[in-house]
């Protein structure tokens, strides 16, 4: 018998095997798409077709669920690894001019003398996101918000590129380097806290997360407390709020003190 005769209905192996598998498929499909959806008393379907579409995973608009009124604004920024990755020299130059108004708090070289964040060499995507959030009101600060509210998209991008381009300088008052505390290096797996270092440097860096080495201890502590109390809420999917809420006050102090004591030149270069 040749292979051609194999695929004919006169061949009982062909008939039986195709028949059996087709039957299994049909039976399981009826069970999976019709019987089981209706077996869930807590789900209501308009008709059989509705049940089949649901079981097949057809994307559906939720019918009558009212979205809760959002009292405060959330961050609208979308970041990818390529956000502002290849700036032009012109953009950096424009950013330098604009940055003169930032220098009073963030320092003429991008290193603050006033417990504001050091911006020299900070990742461009980070500054870009925070400025956007200040502009939209997703993040508020009595000093920063008025500065940000009138910035254009272009100005935000230029400022971000300028600061990212500056060399990372030591903090204004460097302190002796502290050893890594547990929260930075291990996190607290039982409380669902990833290590700080897995996003913010020391272990790894993730898109949108600032490096923290040499930043002001008072500033970092204040931000962690603001996240924990829900006062600051521009973190995407509550990433930082969930972490900060689960941290103990001692851990917040340890993490802030550790990062403040690190020299920023150990931050990994941006690819």
């Amino acid at each position: 018998m040749s292979t051609r005769e194999l695929f004919t209905l006169t061949n009982r192996h062909f008939k039986a095997s195709v028949g059996i598998f087709a039957a299994i498929f049909v039976v399981t499909a009826i069970a999976g798409f019709i019987v089981l959806p209706f077996a869930q008393p807590w789900v209501q379907f308009a008709n059989v077709w509705d049940a089949i579409c649901s079981a097949a995973g057809v994307p559906q608009r939720a019918a009558s669920v009212a979205t809760p009124e959002q009292s405060k604004r959330l961050s609208e920024v979308v970041l990818t690894s390529n956000t502002l990755s290849r700036p032009s020299q012109e953009a950096i130059g424009r950013g330098a001019t604009l940055a003169q108004r930032c220098a009073i708090c963030h320092g003429p070289t991008g290193v603050s003398r006033a417990d504001s964040p050091n911006l020299a060499g900070q990742y461009a995507a980070v500054i870009y996101k925070e400025l956007h959030d200040f502009r939209t009101g997703a993040r508020t600060n009595a000093v920063m918000s008025p500065f940000a509210v009138n910035l254009t998209d272009q100005e935000i991008a230029d400022l971000s590129n300028y600061y990212a381009d500056l060399p990372r300088l030591p903090a204004y008052h460097p302190t002796p380097q502290l050893p890594k505390p547990n929260i930075v290096i291990y996190g607290a797996p039982m409380r669902g806290i990833a290590p700080c270092g897995s996003c913010h440097g020391s272990l790894d860096n993730k898109t949108g997360s600032p490096w923290l080495e040499g930043q002001s201890e008072a500033y970092m502590k204040a931000q962690l407390q603001a996240f924990a109390s829900d006062e600051r809420r521009n973190d995407i999917s509550q990433q930082m709020r969930n972490v900060a809420r689960a941290m103990t006050p001692q851990e917040i102090e340890q993490a802030a003190a550790y990062y403040a004591s690190q020299p920023p030149d150990i931050v990994k270069a941006v690819d």
Binding site: A29, L36, S54, A55, G57
Partner: peptide
């Protein structure tokens, strides 16, 4: 979440086979 429950059931049944 991106897979429909019906297909999960079919795959489960075929896994039994």
């Amino acid at each position: 979440p991106q897979v429909g429950a019906g297909f999960k059931f079919i795959h489960s049944a075929f896994t039994a086979l």
